[in-house]
Computed example of a mutant assay.
Amino acid sequence: MITMQDIVREGHPSLRKVADDVALPPSKEDQEILIKLLEYVKNSQDPEISAKYGLRSGVGLAAPQINVSKRMLAVHVTDNKGTLYSYALFNPKIISHSVEKAYLTSGEGCLSVDRAVPGYVPRYARVTVKGWDVEGNEVKIRLKGLPAIVFQHEIDHLNGIMFYDHIDEKNPLSPIPDALPIER
């Protein structure tokens, strides 16, 4: 089980490295890591389990955040209609995206960042992500709204990018032109 002690914090070198592709079909070890990533995100959203183990609630986690520099991530998030997006993927990549941008009005947070970083993070409003599930089967997902933002945040981790790298330093809270504001 992954705990908060396993999650590396900003400044750790693995958060700034471009992660390596996972060889497919996945090894047993890689499958176990991927399962544990999703398990953490689910457990962190369960009030009893998160209290018992001191887990900070999250909607996504990427392997570099546990000091594993491989392209794998897990997302467990519900959109504004109540649809659950629960995925654990190897080698995920954005294969298409909208021109339109979106941002969370509350800003973004990160399990690897122990401080509030105010500011709007411009993201694509809609993305299509392709990856491979724990068994090595290809998966293609069309996303919009909060799930699209969460996937982009986690994929950034695989490329050594932190969410605050996208924030306008001079005007962190100035609305992003022509972007869709998303309440969370």
Rank of each mutant, 00 (worst) to 15 (best):
M1Y: 10
H12M: 05
E135M: 12
L15Q: 02
H97S: 15
N159F: 10
H12Q: 03
D6P: 00
E100I: 10
Y103K: 03
S57R: 12
T78F: 15
V22G: 00
N137E: 15
V68G: 07
L146H: 05
G107H: 01
Y164N: 11
K28P: 13
R56V: 15
I95T: 14
S14K: 00
E100F: 07
R142K: 14
T128E: 14
P25D: 09
M162R: 07
E108K: 03
E183Y: 13
V22E: 00
F90Y: 13
K17Q: 14
S69M: 15
I155K: 04
Q31P: 06
A19D: 02
R184D: 10
R115K: 14
D20Y: 06
V129R: 01
L146C: 06
R56Y: 14
R184A: 09
L61R: 01
P175G: 09
K70N: 14
P147Q: 03
A62C: 11
Q31L: 09
V150L: 07
D178Q: 15
A88E: 14
R126N: 07
N43D: 15
A63D: 12
I182V: 15
V77T: 14
E100P: 04
Q5L: 13
G145F: 07
T128P: 05
D178W: 13
Y103W: 06
E108D: 02
V75E: 13
I161N: 08
Y103Q: 07
L24N: 03
E154Y: 02
I66R: 01
F163H: 06
I33W: 03
E39F: 12
P25H: 02
E169I: 12
Q65M: 12
A102R: 01
E138R: 00
P175Y: 13
K17I: 08
L37P: 02
D79T: 06
V113K: 02
V99P: 03
D133N: 11
G82Q: 08
I167G: 04
A19K: 00
S174W: 11
P64S: 11
Y40G: 09
R123L: 04
V22C: 01
V68C: 12
A63H: 08
V41I: 12
I176K: 05
D156S: 02
S69Y: 10
V8N: 01
Q65W: 07
K170C: 10
E29T: 05
L24V: 09
L15M: 04
E48K: 13
S14A: 10
L104F: 10
Y53V: 11
P147R: 00
L73Q: 12
K42D: 13
L143C: 08
N43H: 13
H12N: 08
P175W: 09
S14V: 08
A179I: 10
A179H: 05
K52A: 15
P64C: 12
Q5Y: 10
S50L: 11
V121T: 02
N91C: 10
N159E: 14
V150P: 04
P177A: 11
Y120D: 07
G109K: 04
C110G: 02
